[in-house]
Design a protein around this nucleic acid. Structure first.
Lengths: 151, 151
DNA sequence: GAGATAAGTTTACTATTGTAAACCATTCTT
DNA sequence: AAGAATGGTTTACAATAGTAAACTTATCTC
């Protein structure tokens, strides 16, 4: 067991490759190539480059097994997605997180189960909810500073 | 009134500038520079470059007013944030949207009002909820294909 | 009016990303 | 064993992004 912590930027192209690794676990470049062949109009060389870069960045791991190389991930999808979502939320005022989440929900199809689960999460969040989320923005980059509550 | 539709990529650095424009409306480069001076360790020239690129991309607009130039936005923050969030959700399986939203909620501080609002939205979403969100992923890039429901 | 300022435009230079050919080493294959 | 196929490594090359100096033009100031 080794939880290697890496948080490099995974680019769009690389992400396509990562999805294959996340779903298939131990893969060879050949498998990645064959899976992405239809979706992405990429030459094999392109995928090799991406695999190489991902290994270089520490996102993927290689181990030589017999004649082939097996690629495995060092960062789970959930974590990568989390890093990515953090990027968004770092671009907006914290006070605005609720609204953005609201828009996301509005814009996507959810299942009944999803909704129920989200309701449960919200229920739990009530225990930690605050009257007003505090803004961490730089003055001039968010309008929280314009109105409001003396300080 | 002119709703110019643009959807160019706004980079991290550019986003800093955009936040200033979004909050302050009609701004001069001078104002942007002064607001970002403390937060970003940037030379004035850097901000000028970013403003120039944003205008070039059509994200910002300039109008010369007397001796100065006034910058205004062509894309609202909400829209830009929406574009950005779409990027994430395009990177994951649709079936997974609910979970990701759940994680986001878990990871952020919300106000009581936020929670209530989200509950209302979820309530409304029930009318459009589905039994199972359908996966649009390429085979091999998501494990929905592995198990289940004959097809 | 001459130099100092301010503001926009050009040019610059490095790193990252998308995309891939070329190259090299190692196995199949016949 | 010689050539084909496989798989990784190097090199390549344009576009974007981060960062900024240099240049130009037009005011401000004394």
């Amino acid at each position: 067991m080794s939880t290697i912590v890496v948080n490099p930027h995974i680019t769009d192209a690389e992400w396509e490759v990562m999805r294959v690794v996340w779903v298939n676990g131990r893969v060879t470049s050949k498998e990645v190539i064959s899976i992405l062949k239809e979706k992405m109009d990429w030459k094999q060389a392109t995928i090799k480059t991406l695999l190489g870069r991902l290994v270089e960045k520490g996102v993927l791991n290689t181990e030589q097994e017999g004649r082939k190389f097996i690629y495995t991930t060092n960062i789970e999808e959930k974590e990568a997605v989390g890093n990515y979502t953090d990027d968004i939320f770092n671009r907006i005022c914290r006070k605005n997180v609720g609204n953005v989440v609201g828009s996301i929900i509005e814009d996507h199809v959810l299942s009944f189960d999803d909704i129920q689960r989200l309701e449960e999460i919200l229920e739990m969040k009530k225990a930690f909810a605050v009257a007003e989320v505090d803004c961490q923005c730089t003055e001039g980059q968010c309008d929280c500073h314009l109105h409001h509550h003396g300080e």
